[in-house]
Simulated scan of single mutants.
Amino acid sequence: MTETTEHWFDPDATTFGDRITGARERAGMTQSDLAKRLGVKLKTLKGWEDDLSEPRANKLSMMAGLLNVSLLWLLSGEGEGPDAPSTGDLSPDISGMLTEMRDIRTRLVTSTDRLARLEKTLRAKLKEEAGE
């Protein structure tokens, strides 16, 4: 499997929280560093990275600037994001594992979307048969 660095944050496979975490790590910041610079509690930043909550527009804009990524990239994964991690220093085994993990994650997201669509369709059919 060949690794591509052009779209290392696949918009279809990463969440908003994943993008914050990845950009923060690429910027060399800890969660505490970013929380302080944004003027928020560490718990708040952790909630964003864990996809439990989302920042307000002003914090989102500040975060994009601090992490040197576009606002569009943070929100959707498209546009100007962080540089891809260098895999030149990693052994081929580790690089291969990272690539495989990204591939599995992409497949999981796709399968989850399919499952959600099937569940929605099933609920509609059950409701229809029940005469509601």
Results as ranks from 00 to 15, higher is better:
22 G>R: 13
62 M>P: 05
13 A>H: 01
6 E>Y: 03
10 D>T: 01
111 S>T: 08
126 L>N: 11
121 T>A: 15
58 N>S: 12
2 T>C: 02
36 K>F: 10
126 L>D: 14
45 L>C: 09
121 T>E: 15
56 R>E: 11
52 L>W: 00
77 G>S: 01
90 L>S: 06
99 T>V: 10
88 G>S: 00
129 E>I: 06
106 T>F: 05
40 V>C: 12
68 N>Y: 09
46 K>N: 13
37 R>Q: 15
89 D>I: 08
125 K>E: 14
22 G>Q: 13
72 L>W: 01
88 G>Y: 00
115 L>A: 05
79 G>Y: 05
96 G>W: 13
54 E>S: 12
11 P>R: 01
39 G>S: 06
3 E>G: 08
71 L>M: 12
107 R>E: 14
15 T>H: 01
78 E>M: 07
26 R>V: 08
70 S>T: 06
61 S>I: 13
111 S>F: 09
84 A>G: 06
107 R>W: 04
10 D>R: 04
101 M>K: 05
101 M>P: 00
25 E>T: 15
110 T>E: 12
16 F>Y: 02
45 L>T: 10
34 L>K: 03
105 R>P: 00
62 M>N: 12
107 R>Y: 01
102 R>D: 11
7 H>N: 12
107 R>Q: 14
55 P>K: 03
25 E>R: 13
20 I>A: 03
104 I>L: 12
99 T>M: 07
91 S>G: 06
62 M>I: 12
23 A>F: 03
13 A>M: 04
46 K>G: 11
94 I>A: 10
6 E>V: 05
38 L>W: 09
28 G>L: 07
31 Q>D: 02
131 G>S: 10
68 N>S: 13
115 L>G: 00
104 I>P: 00
93 D>F: 09
48 W>E: 09
63 M>F: 06
17 G>Q: 07
46 K>I: 14
37 R>P: 00
123 R>F: 09
22 G>F: 11
50 D>R: 12
25 E>H: 10
83 D>A: 15
125 K>A: 09
122 L>C: 10
100 E>M: 08
14 T>V: 10
43 K>Q: 14
112 T>M: 05
16 F>H: 05
34 L>Q: 05
71 L>A: 10
17 G>L: 07
11 P>L: 01
83 D>Y: 07
118 L>N: 11
1 M>E: 08
104 I>D: 04
46 K>D: 09
34 L>E: 04
116 A>W: 04
40 V>T: 14
97 M>K: 11
5 T>F: 06
123 R>D: 15
15 T>A: 06
124 A>T: 12
90 L>T: 04
50 D>E: 15
18 D>N: 15
123 R>Y: 11
73 W>H: 00
41 K>I: 00
33 D>N: 15
19 R>I: 00
2 T>N: 07
